[in-house]
């Protein structure tokens, strides 16, 4: 109680300075985005202003209508959600299985296999763009969902495995022993007992995988050519060519494609922060 009163009174120079720093950094981080939204609601002619922001004479919702329709927003959003959802699901399953096998099962090569799988963390993704393009082309996988799903899983797997093995350590072996006594098989132990126990770890892996892949476009633009499986970033990429002189609509499509991730982040802010923090500190 005493402490509380004390801190409230202390509006010293230091404390003011502290707030100034925080607010300055916040403005630097967020102002470009405010600018983006502001210009997206103006008309292209109004942009050539001397001020920092424009007050649109008439709010141009039409920019967003154009962005929504011509940017194939719904299709690309659906693709992004589907591909990322599947990737997250598969990464969790595969990494959990591999983590269990390397950590708990008794076999000679467990250490070697784990190191091998973790090695992927050090490989730069973009170095595999050229050969993978060739491989997918040969196998007829380009322009299919697999061309994205496979590398997304592959490059999220090492980190997921790393996190999963760490989290698995925290689960007492005794629990498994009891389950074995009751006659459970390995699969039953992994999917019915371990998986529910690791809920928060699974959430961390899911968040990290999702953040890693949601905004990816380099592989997508290399391996895909038709719109069938293109993901959300393409709304922006394709638009700049199509509406090269209509800047306001370009701003609208950028704001629109950024919106889902920002909204989800603001809603789940606490969980995502916790997830990233757990993932990053352990990784």
């Amino acid at each position: 109680m005493e402490k509380k009163i004390k801190t409230k009174k202390q509006w010293t120079v230091g404390r003011v300075l502290l707030w100034v720093v925080l607010i300055c950094v916040a403005v630097i981080q967020i102002f470009p985005l405010i600018w983006l939204v502001d210009f997206s609601l103006a008309s292209s002619n109004e942009m050539f202003t001397k001020g920092l922001l424009v007050i649109p004479q008439k709010i141009q919702w039409g920019n967003y209508v154009k962005a929504f329709i011509d940017g194939h927003f719904l299709l690309y959003l659906k693709n992004s959600l589907l591909i990322n959802g599947l990737a997250v699901l598969l990464v969790i399953l595969i990494s959990l299985m591999a983590a269990f096998a390397c950590k708990r099962m008794i076999w000679k090569m467990s250490g070697l296999v784990k190191t091998l799988l973790l090695l992927g963390m050090m490989i730069p993704i973009h170095a595999t763009l050229l050969p993978n393009y060739k491989i997918y082309n040969m196998l007829g996988l380009t322009d299919t969902i697999w061309a994205l799903l496979i590398p997304y899983i592959a490059f999220s797997l090492p980190q997921a495995l790393f996190l999963m093995t760490g989290f698995l350590d925290a689960i007492p072996v005794e629990l498994e022993e009891a389950a074995v006594m009751d006659g459970s098989g390995i699969y039953r132990i992994v999917f019915r007992m371990i998986l529910p126990l690791m809920k928060s770890s699974v959430a961390t892996v899911a968040i990290m995988t999702f953040l890693n892949n949601w905004n990816e476009f380099m592989m997508a633009s290399t391996y895909l050519s038709s719109p069938t499986w293109k993901t959300l970033p393409f709304s922006v990429l394709e638009f700049t060519g199509q509406y090269s002189s209509n800047y306001a609509v370009q701003f609208a499509v950028m704001a629109l494609t950024a919106a889902p991730a920002v909204l989800v982040y603001i809603l789940l802010n606490k969980h995502i922060t916790k997830g990233v923090a757990m993932g990053a500190v352990k990784g």
């Binding site: 925080l22 916040a26 905004n215 959300l232 922006v236 370009q250 950028m254 802010n269």
Partner: peptide, 22 residues
């Protein structure tokens, strides 16, 4: 503040790059 500082991170590189171009 924590939320504000992190927001640019969840936005696609595609948006970030074109935004800065502007």
């Amino acid at each position: 503040f924590r939320c504000v500082y992190f927001i640019p991170n969840v936005i696609s590189v595609a948006v970030i790059a074109y935004l800065w171009k502007f």
